[in-house]
Amino acid sequence: MIVAEQKPLDEIKNLLGDSQRVLVAGCGTCVTVCFAGGAKEAGILGSLLRMAAQLDGHPKAVTEVTVQRQCEWEYLDAIRDQVESADVVVSLGCGVGAQALAEHFPEKVVVPGLNTKFMGLPAEHGEWVERCAACGNCLLGLTGGICPIARCSKQLLNGPCGGSSHGKCEITCGDSQPDCAWQLIYDKLKAQGRLHLIMEITPPKDWRTSRDGGPRKIVRKDLKLPGTEIKE
């Protein structure tokens, strides 16, 4: 899932400026599961913004709504009335959701309430970790199901680098030291009796399938509706 976390309240307040009617729009998918922007979080942010505005002496009319997915037009159509009656919309969706809102309601000011962090999973209660970097050309079949792009700090294709110690990466992330991805890959392949895979040299990666190729797009001819134009 896409993992996000809420922006500091002061930043959101600054983004709102003098707007009087504010709609906090939650999203019922990824950001609900990571407790960043679901119905509950939208309600809490709405309460905080109303009270903060009242304490600042400039009360605002803050309402909340949550859609199943902010990244699909159909769900956004369902909240058209609420969006149109607001001066500004705070999106509690990921960056995709916020952009979808802004694109679907071009006349409306949409501001983000979240910082979208990464694609990952909940490792335990209250802790999420990155697992995929969306590089566009999956290598997991060669690496025991452990991604060296997302989980190796140096994104090495032919690791390990020699800088890891006791299974930990030499590069620290904040106050934590991540596991060495290539140590994990080695251990996994060894346990599976497939250690020969680590001896295969992976050629330089074609990063055009990742961000280096610019914004990406997928077209499925089999799913296109009849009569719509197919652009390659």
């Binding site: 509950k40 309460s47 109303r50």
Partner: peptide
């Protein structure tokens, strides 16, 4: 107890 309950009370 939910955070929203606490905030509702203050609101």
């Amino acid at each position: 107890l939910d955070l929203q309950l606490i905030l509702d009370a203050f609101e």
